[in-house]
Each structure stands twice: as C-alpha cells, then as structure tokens.
Design a protein around this nucleic acid. Structure first.
Lengths: 225, 225
DNA sequence: CTGTATCTTTACAAAATCTTTATGACCCAA
DNA sequence: TTGGGTCATAAAGATTTTGTAAAGATACAG
C-alpha cells in the first residue's frame, strides 16, 4: 500500500511533528491525536491502516487504549514508548501490539517496521488482482473491469467491493462491513449498506434483480462469489 | 498454538542451549541448526511454525538465508543479532523478517514477540470446516455445501446446523437446543424445533423421510451424525 | 460562487423469514 | 381397541428484513 493512512496517538507535539514529516515524505497520509480518547474516536469514525501509539499518555493509559482498540481494530498497532522495561513490552505485545519500539527510535528502523507490518497485514488478505467470472478487481491500481471494460465506481463503492473481493466466499456480517468501511461508530447504519450494495449491483451484476456476485444472506450480511 | 515447532538457526552453541531451555519450558518444540545451509534443509524437510534466525552466521550470511527462506516460507521469521545498526535492521525487515531483536535480548520480551508473531500468523490462516459425508460446514465462512454445491440456509437454519455440527455424535436435548438458538425463555417451544429440523432435513438430507444426518431421539432430542 | 458528484436520510413496496395453527402418523400402555 | 404422548409436515398469518427510488445535505472542483 503506497498511501496508507497512519494515525499517531502521542501527547508530545514535537514527536508528532517529527513523525508527520517523516511519514508524509514517505507517501503516507497522517492523522494525529494528542490523547488516547481522541485517538479512539478518530479511529472509530475513520479506521486508519496503521496506528502509532504512545504508551505514556496523560489521562487514559496507553495500555488501556491498546486494549480498547483491539476489541475491534485488527490492523497493525505499533507501540512507541520511552519505557524500556520488560513488563511494559511484554504487556503491550500480549495485548495485541504488532510491534514495540523504544524512544528515541531510529527513523529508518521505524519506517522499515511500518512497511513490514503493513506488508503482513496486506498479504493476510491476499493481494493483487481478484478475478471472478466476468469481473476483474485490481486491488493495487484500484480499478474494476467487467468483460474487459473499466467500470466507474465511487470511492465508497470501490472500498466495499474490494472488501468483498478480499473475503470472497465468506459471509460478511453487516456489522463487520460497516466497521471496516465506515468505522466502528457506524455499526448500526445498515441502511447505508443496502443503498451501496444496491448501487454496486447495478454496476457489476448482469441482472441486478438476480445478483450472482453479491449475494444477500438475510438477517446476517452479504457474501461475495 | 500451544506446542508450536520452532527452528533455531544460530552458530553459537550456548545461545542455542539457552533458547532451547527457555522455549521448551514454555511448551514449544525446538529444532536446531548451527549453519544457514543446515537450517534451510531442515525447514524444507519439515517446515516449523516459526524460525529464529541469527544474522551473524559463518558461511552463508543470515541476510542471504532470510531471502532464500522467504522465497517459499511464509510463517514468522524473527531475526536475532548482535548488530544494532540501522542498515542491518532495515534490510532484514524489508527482506521479510517478522521482527528483529538485538542480542543480548530479554527472554521475556523474546517470548512475548514469539507469541505475538504466532498469534498473527494463526489468524491469517484459520479455517475450520466440519466435513460429514457429503456435507461440508465451514464455520468461519458461514457456508454449507452438499456434494460441493452451496446450500441456501436461513440464518436460524444455519445456526441450528452449526450447533449440531459442533456437537456431532452427541444427543442434544430439546431444551438445550432451544436455549442455545432462541434463548433461555424459549425452552418450551419444541414445535419450533420440529419445524426447523424439518426444513433443514429437506435441504441437507438425501431422503428427508429417512434422515441420515439429523436423527430423532424420541422423547429426548436430536443427534447429528 | 456555482454546478456536479457523492453521501446521507426518508419513505414505502417487495421479499424472505419466523411464528402459529391445523392435521395426521406413529408408538406404546391401559 | 383406544387414548395420550410425541413427532412430522403443510400452510396461513405476522413480522422482520431487504431493495429501490428519490429528496435533502454535503463536499469539492473549476
């Protein structure tokens, strides 16, 4: 992923600034939060592709934030901390941190660890091009073709289709889809899904009244074939 | 994974011994190799669940071994090294190392990083399918197939079948099933069960009048075979 | 500032599913 | 034989879930 979105949760402005400059110059899109609570709400309303989390936060502790994030967030979380003691490291890793880096860190190493984390979270969902009957979905170029012709999709439509394509054959619950595309706080907005699934079907299905790709599993969610 | 197999590739016997003792006392099964070449052939003949790789190997360099491993091996590789310079760290991570730890390392931290790596590589795979004659029930994808063809089940029908599949061979009482699927207050609604078992049988049994999968235990409940 | 594309919300019809009722079969003991 | 209990099935009804169109809101580019 070239332009992954990274959320920084850290109370020190100079660290945030340093990270922002380095990350942006490497092509990442950066969001910032100075408190854990703000970080939680930001990630809930728009889930980033990776989170950089400081452990030594004022107010709610970083360990606590990590636990709350991991209740639903399953992409990489790299913990940054001045604390170099084993207890903090082990606790963070066992609570679901992807990696733990002590401050001061080397920028090159941080970037490499970010690349490594993102790479693994990506090929967990098995990247490249998904071919499905007359449909071709290029997950890298973000292009969708039907019988060889490029289809014009809006950003949200594409995100939804990509999520389906990455999880072909599985039933995805409404909650899961809403969480992935719109964010944690949209879990109850099932009407969004109906509208967007409707418009996707109009564009990708041969006969939208008898969908062959996006199949509805009544009461549960949708399944992509 | 409680008893994961870990391969140690390191030329220092005392490090291997130290690792072996610590890993085995934590329930891991340990194999050892003192050279990169030996490590490659061991991992090829019997792929471990995780590899601990020393970078400072005599003969073929650890970076080279890492590259060759990554041509086919996609489970976690944690690099251990006395080299604490950025070049080695970045190179290892970019060549597919899951993590990089400098020696001397803290045992607790290493164990936590091993747990973390294995945990993530596990839930990347993760498919539990119950096969039962011509029936296949994929509990993660929430899909049921009969002779390879996907069967359309309603949400309640699926829940019921999944409950049966998870308890194959056991007799499940009416009360228990009703409690699990509909909730505690439905324990007396045995007629629900008759209706739903009936419709399930129509869909999954070869001959619904002579059911082979869902067997009636008169006066008690049902049993799944 | 203006128009266009996209997203969000509302309203209602259609479809799918669940619940209830009715009926008949079967087994077993009185 | 007869009557009570358990079970299976069909079908009517009630309820929930889904699909669709379209209006209002928002964001964005020129």
């Amino acid at each position: 992923m070239n332009n992954a979105e990274i959320l920084i949760i850290d109370d020190e402005p100079q660290i945030r600034k340093l990270l922002q400059i380095n990350l942006e110059s490497n092509g990442y899109k950066v969001t910032q939060a100075s408190t854990g609570e703000h970080g939680l709400s930001l990630s809930a309303s728009h889930p980033p592709d990776l989170i950089l989390l400081d452990i030594g936060l004022p107010g709610k502790d970083g360990h606590q934030i990590l636990k709350e994030l991991r209740e639903w967030y399953n992409k990489p979380i790299i913990v940054l901390s001045v604390r170099d003691n084993e207890t903090d490291i082990v606790s963070a890793l066992d609570n679901g941190a992807t990696d733990y880096l002590t401050k001061p860190f080397r920028t090159g190493e941080l970037l490499a660890r970010i690349r490594s984390s993102i790479r693994r979270s990506e090929n967990a969902e098995n990247n490249s091009t998904v071919v499905c009957g007359d449909l071709e979905i290029d997950l890298i170029a973000r292009v969708v073709k039907k019988m060889g012709d490029t289809i014009k999709l809006t950003s949200t439509e594409y995100n939804l289709l990509a999520l389906f394509a990455k999880n072909g054959g599985k039933v995805l619950t409404h909650q899961f889809i809403l969480k992935e595309i719109w964010g944690y706080s949209f879990q109850t907005e099932t009407q969004y899904l109906r509208v967007f699934v409707g418009s996707l079907r109009k564009k990708i299905e041969e006969n939208p009244n008898n969908p062959q790709h996006i199949i509805t599993e009544s009461g549960v969610g949708y399944r992509f074939e």
